[in-house]
């Protein structure tokens, strides 16, 4: 009973906040609704017994991805009138995408009703008494190790690409060299002299 209530609560909030992402006028509000949607999706994952995925969803999407979204959206100076002006022009394209998505949904549900692919039996780990993390780990590091490593390499390449694209060498910048500063001793910079009276000092 309580699972049912929780499921409908989470699901309703996910759908409602996903709708609000589109309908909110202020982009910052949109991102906030998106975060709410992520959060409740994590709740749905918890109900499905996938606590590891739920926590990852919060850590990665809410804690990192959405923060970057928020950063970008806050920094942008967005003209709302201009945003709205393209509405009619892009309406046919948007409608087309929506129709394709709707058709795919109907198709998928139909296929599922017709028996579906028996994916669940193929990939499901056997034991249910071990925790989620162990099951995922055992699959990820044995059966799917090459896919896992390939994903890692793709991410590495993407990261290096982003750095290469945005990195630029600026001239005339004085960068603090901390190890050089730490290596510096008083003897390198100061000198004790004992000049006689009236002799002055050579600098």
């Amino acid at each position: 009973m309580i699972q049912l209530i929780a499921f409908y609560l989470f699901a309703t909030i996910v759908i409602a906040s996903a709708a609000m992402v589109i309908f909110a006028r202020n982009p910052v509000h949109s991102v906030m609704w998106l975060i709410l949607a992520f959060f409740n999706a994590a709740g749905l994952m918890l109900l499905a017994g996938a606590e590891f995925i739920a926590m990852l969803l919060v850590i990665v999407y809410v804690g990192a991805v959405a923060v970057l979204f928020l950063f970008v959206v806050m920094m942008l100076d967005i003209d709302f009138a201009e945003l709205r002006s393209g509405f009619v022009r892009y309406l046919p394209l948007g409608a087309l995408v929506a129709i394709v998505l709707a058709a795919e949904l109907v198709f998928a549900v139909g296929a599922w009703q017709a028996g579906g692919v028996d994916l669940a039996a193929r990939a499901a780990p056997a034991a249910t008494d071990t925790s989620n993390i162990q099951q995922i780990g055992e699959l990820l590091y044995t059966r799917y190790i090459f896919l896992f490593e390939a994903a890692g390499i793709v991410l590495l390449v993407a990261m290096i690409g982003a750095i290469v694209l945005t990195h630029r060498q600026r001239g005339g910048v004085r960068i603090q060299n901390i190890s050089a500063q730490n290596r510096r001793r008083p003897e390198d910079a100061t000198r004790l002299v004992d000049p006689g009276v009236g002799q002055g000092m050579e600098l």
Partner: peptide
């Protein structure tokens, strides 16, 4: 089971109050 991950998840939410 995922106590430590929960802590990480919650502490990553703390950013939102500030931002």
């Amino acid at each position: 089971n995922v106590g430590l991950l929960y802590i990480l998840a919650i502490s990553s939410l703390g950013v939102y109050g500030v931002i």
